[in-house]
Computed example of a mutant assay.
Amino acid sequence: MFRFKFILSLLLLFSFEEITFAQLKNTAQTSQIENNQTTVNYLSKSEQLRNKKIVSLTIILTVIIFLLFYFLYQNNKLKQKIKRKDTKQKILLNIINSGIDSQEVERKKIASFLHDNINSLLSSAGLHLNTFTAQNDLKSEEIRKAKAILSEAHELLRDMSHDLVPSLLVRFGLIYALEDLCEKNSNSAIEFEFSSAIPISRRYVEKFEMKIYFIVSELFSNITKHSNAKKAKLSLAERENQLILHIYDDGIGFKTQKLKDAEGFGLSRIRARIKKYKGTLSITSKENQGTKIKIQIPLPH
């Protein structure tokens, strides 16, 4: 009986151990499956996150590329606009300079015609009249008036010829002519002062001298008409193979930002002349504080 119980106890013990082992085995398998599922879920989430990042980067790159193409398009459009504007400006400058060159050629022709022909005829007529009255001892009022009219006509034509192309400019050069221009523009209302670091005997190419002379003459005219100045000054110098002119007046001045309004005073023509010789024009002005103008032009070879 005791043996039977002992054997039965052993059988029950083995059966319990087998059941416990089976349960443990099932638990381990379940845990492994759960771990595998967790791993799969993690990998799935990682894949989704990676895909989202790829999509986001693709969108950002697309936007950046679009913006780059847009800015390139706008940049090219702006360049074309600037190019068209420069082309128009060059055409306008060429037109202005062609007109100025034609005017200067005509000035020279008319001045030469007036001086060499009309003045000579008037001088000859006056000489013959003087000779005739001296030989015949005539002293009538009509002859005296005729002589006075001939003399006045001669003076007017000489002044007109001088205004078209100053004889001093042709005979003695730019520096001498500009000094004379300062003296002629000075009066009781305004004084033009002249100073030069260049010898008065210095000569340049005739066409260049005429251009500079008429630029200064036009600026002087603007000062006289518009500045209400009491004093003005012109100074000349040569530096680094450039002719440098400073023109100053103590007049009413104007706002620099309104400089375009002053273009009507002939500055557009002056700019065109200077630009043709690859020079620069700078204007500094303040209201009631006068105006300073600086011109730099490369010297002709």
Rank of each mutant, 00 (worst) to 15 (best):
F208I: 08
E142C: 00
F220G: 12
S235D: 10
K211L: 08
L219F: 02
K90R: 12
R202G: 06
V63I: 06
K278Y: 10
I100S: 13
Q23R: 06
E47N: 13
N76G: 12
F172L: 11
D250T: 09
S188R: 14
K207H: 15
A197V: 04
P166I: 11
D137Q: 15
A272V: 10
I270C: 04
L8R: 07
F208W: 02
T256S: 15
F14K: 07
I200W: 01
R50N: 13
E218Y: 01
F254N: 11
G173S: 07
E179V: 06
V205L: 14
S235V: 13
Q257H: 10
K53C: 08
Q242S: 06
K207S: 15
F6P: 00
Q48Y: 12
L169N: 13
S102W: 10
D249I: 03
K81W: 10
I64Q: 05
I33T: 15
S31Y: 12
L92M: 14
S151L: 02
A189M: 11
E238D: 02
G99Q: 07
F66I: 08
Q289M: 05
D250G: 04
I19C: 00
L13R: 07
R144F: 09
S120R: 09
S167Q: 10
E155H: 00
K207N: 12
E263W: 10
I223A: 01
T27A: 08
S235R: 04
N75R: 09
A134D: 06
R202K: 15
R50L: 11
K292T: 09
K260T: 15
K145D: 05
K184P: 01
L61H: 13
A134Q: 13
R273Y: 08
Q23L: 05
L259H: 11
S282H: 13
N51P: 02
L10I: 08
I283F: 09
Y73R: 13
I100F: 11
K5Q: 02
L267H: 07
L93E: 13
G99A: 09
A148F: 01
S282I: 06
L138H: 07
D137I: 12
F265R: 12
S9Q: 09
S44N: 12
K230G: 15
K260E: 11
K25V: 03
S56F: 09
K25H: 10
K147V: 00
F254S: 03
S285F: 04
I110P: 02
G251L: 00
I96M: 11
M1Y: 02
E141H: 02
I200G: 00
L281C: 07
T38G: 04
S15E: 08
K278I: 02
T133Q: 13
K292Y: 11
L13Y: 10
